[in-house]
Amino acid sequence: MVADTGRATPRRTYPKHTRHWVTSLAAAGVAVAATTSVAQTAGRFHWWAGFVLIPGAVIGAAGGALLARGGGRAFAGYVVGCVGLLVFTVGALLMTGTMGGGWPVLVMLPCLVVAGTYLWRPADPLARGLHRTVALLALAGAGVGVALMLIRHRLVDPGETHWWGGFVLAAGLLVGGNAVEVARHRMPYRLQAVTLLLGPAVVAALLGVRMLRGW
């Protein structure tokens, strides 16, 4: 009896992992069912989009299960889950027939995915500063997607304004701000890193101003 108990002890970890998979797959099933129901209710049901929707849901569920387990698999799970989310979103837009008005979401989501990687911040100040720069630029890119969505649905009318220049200017300011932050840390190659960031920051800021003024 003691030997049997000893062999059974390591198996206690499996139910937890199984619950992650069951929960992720259940969430994926609910998402597929909800999207299908919405498409049918709206009278825009395109059944063939299920060949995109369902694989996206399964990929997302696999990523969610890995992310929930944590540890070294967390980042891989995040990447896989985000890929699944993107594929699922494409399938949902196709199934509901809203690709024409919802395509800016496909600009926002990839940018938010990149921005979300900032959860895994490198320990090195230089690498962390460069990573923060990329994440903030991705947030600016998500802002472009939001602007496109508002303009596409005529909630905002930019008129003749070259509005995208504002995002170019913002990108330059973000990169410049991160250059200042990197300069605060005493580390090797600090001068080179600051120079590498400031150069594109100045160019982007000037281009943004020029675009806004319509030069």
Rank of each mutant, 00 (worst) to 15 (best):
T117F: 01
I54W: 04
A26Y: 05
P110E: 08
A127W: 05
M108R: 01
L25C: 08
T9P: 00
A204G: 00
L148Y: 03
W164Y: 08
H185T: 14
L25V: 14
V194P: 05
W103D: 02
G159Y: 13
G172R: 04
A92P: 04
M149Y: 11
R213E: 06
R128S: 10
T98K: 14
W163R: 12
V80F: 06
P55M: 13
R184Q: 11
I151V: 12
L130C: 03
L197F: 09
R186I: 04
R121I: 02
T161S: 13
M149V: 00
G208H: 01
G176Y: 05
H162C: 00
A26Q: 07
T161L: 15
F88A: 12
W21A: 14
G129C: 06
V156D: 11
A138Q: 07
W48M: 07
V79H: 02
Y118Q: 07
G214M: 00
T98G: 14
F45T: 01
P200Y: 03
L206G: 15
M187N: 00
M99S: 13
L148G: 01
V180E: 11
S37E: 04
P110I: 08
G81Y: 04
L206E: 08
L196R: 10
A147G: 09
G97M: 12
A42H: 10
A3E: 10
A147C: 11
G81Q: 14
G50H: 08
L174M: 07
R213F: 04
A115V: 03
Y78Q: 02
V182I: 13
R213K: 07
G141Y: 03
W163L: 08
V144L: 15
W163H: 09
V87G: 09
A74K: 15
T9A: 15
V209K: 07
G63S: 10
L66V: 01
R19V: 11
D4V: 13
T133H: 04
T161M: 10
L85V: 13
R128E: 05
H17Q: 10
L86S: 02
H185N: 11
M1A: 15
Q40E: 09
W215R: 08
R213S: 04
A68K: 14
